[in-house]
């Protein structure tokens, strides 16, 4: 037997002893009900050697199968006693599990070929999170730090000479959320910067920021950032 007989697809290596056995049976084009046990056992063992030489950790299952094969092989070598005609073919021990395994493999293929929900067929109420965004608009969900970063930039932009202002009709975070919801109801999404008018006072900006954080917390809005432009956009779900 030449070495290149055992050139195998690496993908198949870890599938298990049954797969190796089926691979060998198919490769040798032999009848599963009449396996040339000596040939298959030798090839099986050489394959194991090959795996060992490639430093692949063999699962115990492979060794168990090797032992089974060797045992069957030795049983086959024993002369059949005439008074023992009814004794079954020692190969039955592996034929049955092999057949069952093949059957289940076909069953698995059959399952994979069905109209799989979410793959080949869909239902109407798809999750909102499923909505895909075209590749050129790739966006990521924003973390708190990106948000704080953006907020700091906005704070820097407000002119320093806007002195202290005392206003009587100060509104609460709750009121600001109501205002923001009104804006969102008109337009589905808005950029982070648009929410902060440049002439707003510091207190106002902080109030808006707190309102946004609160809305994210209760999942009223979803915040995403464009990968390329870095623009943060808020979506009202």
């Amino acid at each position: 037997m030449s070495e290149n007989n055992y050139k195998v697809n690496l993908d198949n290596i870890f599938e298990g002893p049954m797969d190796l056995l089926i691979y060998l049976i198919k490769k040798n084009e032999v009848d599963i009900y009449d396996i040339p046990i000596a040939l298959i056992t030798n090839q099986y063992l050489s394959y194991l050697e090959l795996m060992k030489s490639m430093n692949i950790d063999l699962a115990g299952d492979f060794i168990v199968m090797a032992a089974t094969l060797t045992q069957i092989k030795s049983k086959m070598l024993l002369p059949a006693h005439e008074d023992n005609v009814s004794e079954e073919d020692p190969r039955t021990e592996i034929i049955e599990p092999l057949m069952q395994y093949l059957q289940m493999k076909s069953a698995a293929e059959h399952l994979a070929a069905r109209d799989i929900l979410g793959e080949n067929t869909f239902v109407r109420s798809a999750d909102k999170e499923d909505y895909s965004i075209s590749d050129d608009e790739e966006i990521i969900n924003v973390g708190l730090f990106e948000l704080i970063d953006a907020f700091q930039k906005i704070l820097k932009n407000i002119s320093a000479d806007v002195g202290m202002q005392f206003t009587v009709n100060r509104i609460s975070v709750k009121d600001r959320i109501t205002e923001l919801v009104e804006i969102f109801e008109k337009q589905e999404s808005i950029t982070f910067n648009e929410l902060f008018s440049s002439n707003a006072g510091k207190g106002d900006i902080i109030l808006t920021f707190l309102a946004i954080l609160e809305m994210v917390k209760v999942r009223l809005v979803r915040i995403v950032q464009h990968v390329q432009t870095g623009i943060i956009r808020l979506f009202y779900d």
Binding site: M104, K105, A108, I116, G118, E119, A126, D127, D130, S132
Partner: peptide, 23 residues
């Protein structure tokens, strides 16, 4: 193109196991 479905991706081994359980 409209939605990004949760891809139903299971390995061959997982599908075999599932088939065995199903049957």
């Amino acid at each position: 193109r409209l939605i990004r479905p949760n891809p139903f991706r299971v390995s061959k081994a997982a599908l075999e196991t599932l088939a065995i359980i199903a049957y």
